[in-house]
């Protein structure tokens, strides 16, 4: 069973190898987008630091617009990296999990 699994994983990796060579140019652009996503994600998490922040506060600290900051907070909240902490004025606050 373990041997069979290893063989199948190799097949998936072989598929990847083939696709990477076929889509090299296209993939370069996609990899750039991933890097940008990693940067934004880190900026939002760094902006949260150890405290509780509203979306406008996160946006200001991360140097991004509030709509983008909310989208990332929503994404990171869904995947358990951020949680809702409380409320400040008209805005909920968030913190790292």
């Amino acid at each position: 069973m373990a041997e069979e699994t290893a063989k199948k994983t190799n097949r998936a990796l072989e598929q990847l190898k083939q696709l990477r060579s076929e889509r090299a140019e296209e993939n370069k652009k996609k990899a750039e987008r991933q890097k940008e996503q990693n940067r934004l994600q880190k900026a939002v998490l760094d902006a949260l630091g150890d405290g509780e922040r509203t979306v406008p506060e996160i946006a200001e600290a991360a140097g991004i617009d509030t709509q983008t900051a909310l989208w990332w907070v929503t994404a990171l909240r869904k995947y358990n990296k951020v949680e809702t902490a409380g409320k400040r004025g008209d805005y909920p606050t968030y913190r790292r999990k």
């Binding site: 709509q67 909310l70 929503t74 869904k78 809702t84 008209d90 909920p92």
Partner: peptide, 16 residues
Amino acid sequence: GPYGGVLRPSDGKIPD
């Protein structure tokens, strides 16, 4: 829901 409450998409404000 995506925000865990009713917020507006531009800045996460609770709409009044």
